[in-house]
Design a protein around this nucleic acid. Structure first.
Length: 414
RNA sequence: GGAGCCAUCGCCAAGUUGGUAAGGCCGUAGAUUGCAAAUCUGCUAUUCACCAGUUCGAGUCUGGUUGGCUCCUCCA
C-alpha cells in the first residue's frame, strides 16, 4: 500500500505507527449550512481510503470532527433566532444522512468542538505555560509562530514577513504577523462564551482538531495519528497551524502522513460558498441515485480537481449500468472468493495511492470478458439455474458488492 | 507580490524508477436478435500545450514560453 504524502510531496509506502492498524483523522464540516458536492468528494475520498486500507487488512480507526462553534454558526443563530445547538444538530443530522446515501461509512469517532472544550482549554493552557502562546489585552490568545522552529514545514509556506503582501490583516498586539488565534474572547454579552482560566470566549478553528486528536488518539510517542486528511484548501493555514500547536504542546508530531483531496469545480472554478456556485449534495440526491453520485465523484483520482458536469455524470451512470446488467445475467448465490488475478489487480490499483482509474479499467475488462463468456453458451440454462452461484463471474460480482472492500460500491447501494 | 498544482484522442481519464500511449463515453463498420434492447468483434492519438536541451531513446528528466486552477481571508 502506497499513499501520497502532501507534505513530502511524494508517494510513500504506508507504514503505520502500530502494526496492522491505521488511524485516520479527517477535517469534517463546519455545520452552518447544507453539505455541497465538495464535502461529498472529500468524504468519499477518505471513505475510499478507509475501505482500501481495510481491504489490505488494516484495522482502521477513522475520526471526523464537526466544527460546531464558529463565526458563521453564530451568524446563522442570529439570523434564524434558533439556538446554536438547534442549528448545529440539524446540519449534523443532514450531513450524516446524506453521506449515508452516498454509502460513506460513519467515522468511529465523531467529536464536536463543543464536547472537546476541556481538551482545548488544556492544550491552550499548556501552550501559554510554555510561552508558546500569549494572551493579549482583549483576552484573545495567540499562538506564537516564532517559537516553533518547524513552522512552515507542512505547507512549505516561507515566511517573508518583511515585505509581506499577504492579505492577512495584522493585529497590532500580535508578536508576529503569522500568529493565529487559539482562543477568541467574547466581545458582547450576547456572544456565545465559555469560561476558561485565560478568558471567557470560544476556541479558534485550528485548535479544536489538535485537541480532539490528542483526546481521542493515543499515538506512539512520535506521532499522534497515521494519516491526517482534508481538502487541499486546508493545507495552509489550517493544517500548518494544527501541526505547530500539537508539536509545541505535546513534543511530538501530529501526523505521520498528510493527504489532501482536490476540489470539485464548476466550469473550471472551485465550488465554494463565496463564489456562489455551490451545488448542494441534497439537491443532487433529489435527482441522482446515491450510488451513481458516489461512482461519479470517485471516478477521478482524489488528488485531482474534479470538474462537475451533468453530462459526465450520465456517462458515469452508463458505465455503472454495464456492471448492473452483468449482475443481472448471473443468478444470485453465495459468493466465494473471486478469481485471484482479478482481486489482486484491483488491490494493486487501489494500493497505489487509490488509483481508481486503473481499478475501474480492471472492472470494465472483467465485465467485457464475463459477457463474452456468457455469450459463448447462452443456452446453458441448466448451468444458470442450478449452479450459477459458483460461476467465477458470480464470484467477481459478489466480491464487488459483498465484502465492502471494494470501494466504489457499498452494501447500501445495490 | 509570494507559494504551489495542472496542460495526454471530440469529451472524461490512466500512464513510480525515461524504452516507444490503459480504460470509459461518443462516433463508425460488422456479428447476433422477428424488430428493438442488451451483448460481442473491428476501426477510432506516429502522438502527449509550445520551444530548446540532456539521452541510443522523453508524455515521462532540465530550462524557458503560453494557457488554466489553487493557496497566502472562511473554506472539503
Amino acid at each position: 500500500m502506497h499513499i501520497y504524502d502532501s507534505v513530502q510531496k511524494t508517494k510513500l509506502p504506508f507504514e503505520p505507527i502500530r502494526k496492522g492498524e491505521a488511524s485516520i483523522y479527517v477535517c469534517g464540516p463546519t455545520v452552518y449550512d447544507n453539505a455541497h458536492l465538495g464535502h461529498a468528494r472529500s468524504s468519499l475520498a477518505f471513505d475510499l481510503l478507509s475501505r482500501t486500507l481495510k481491504a489490505f487488512g488494516y484495522k482502521v480507526t477513522m475520526g471526523k470532527n464537526f466544527t460546531d462553534i464558529d463565526d458563521k454558526i453564530i451568524k446563522k443563530v442570529e439570523e434564524t433566532g434558533l439556538s446554536m445547538e438547534e442549528v448545529t444538530s440539524y446540519y449534523i443530522a443532514r450531513y450524516i444522512e446524506e453521506m449515508a446515501v452516498l454509502g460513506v461509512e460513519r467515522a468511529d469517532i465523531e467529536p464536536k468542538a463543543t464536547e472537546s472544550l476541556q481538551a482545548i482549554e488544556n492544550m491552550i493552557q499548556t501552550l501559554i505555560d510554555k510561552d508558546t502562546a500569549y494572551v493579549i489585552s482583549t483576552g484573545d490568545v495567540y499562538f506564537d509562530t516564532s517559537k516553533d522552529a518547524h513552522y512552515g514545514e507542512i505547507s512549505h509556506q516561507v515566511g517573508d514577513d518583511d515585505d509581506n503582501q499577504s492579505r492577512v490583516t495584522h493585529t497590532s498586539e500580535k508578536r508576529n504577523p503569522k500568529d493565529f488565534a487559539l482562543w477568541k474572547a467574547c466581545k458582547g454579552e450576547e456572544d456565545i462564551c465559555f469560561e476558561t482560566a485565560f478568558s471567557s470566549g470560544r476556541p479558534g478553528w485550528h485548535i479544536e482538531c489538535s485537541a480532539m486528536i490528542e483526546k481521542h488518539f493515543t499515538g506512539d510517542g512520535h506521532y499522534s495519528i497515521d494519516i491526517h486528511g482534508g481538502g487541499a484548501d486546508l493545507l495552509f493555514p489550517h493544517h500548518e497551524n494544527e501541526a505547530a500547536q500539537s508539536r509545541c504542546a505535546t513534543g511530538h508530531e501530529l501526523s505521520k502522513y498528510w493527504m489532501h483531496n482536490g476540489f470539485v469545480q464548476i466550469n473550471g472554478e472551485k465550488m465554494s460558498k463565496s463564489l456562489g456556485n455551490s451545488f448542494f449534495l441534497g439537491d443532487a440526491l433529489k435527482i441522482y441515485d446515491g450510488e451513481i453520485l458516489r461512482y461519479y465523484l470517485n471516478c477521478v483520482h482524489y488528488r485531482n480537481d474534479f470538474n462537475f458536469s451533468e453530462e459526465e455524470l450520465q456517462t458515469a451512470k452508463k458505465r455503472l449500468d454495464k456492471l448492473y446488467r452483468l449482475k443481472k445475467r448471473v443468478s444470485p448465490g453465495k459468493g466465494s472468493m473471486p478469481n485471484k488475478t482479478f482481486k489482486q489487480a484491483l488491490l494493486d490499483a487501489m494500493g497505489d495511492d487509490l488509483n481508481i482509474s486503473i481499478a475501474l479499467a480492471v472492472i470494465d475488462e472483467m465485465v467485457a470478458n464475463s459477457n463474452d463468456a456468457l455469450d459463448d453458451n447462452p443456452k446453458d440454462k441448466a448451468l444458470k439455474k442450478r449452479d450459477f452461484g459458483k460461476h467465477y463471474i458470480y464470484r467477481y460480482i459478489a466480491w464487488i458488492w459483498g465484502e465492502r472492500t471494494v470501494l466504489l460500491f457499498s452494501d447500501r447501494c445495490r
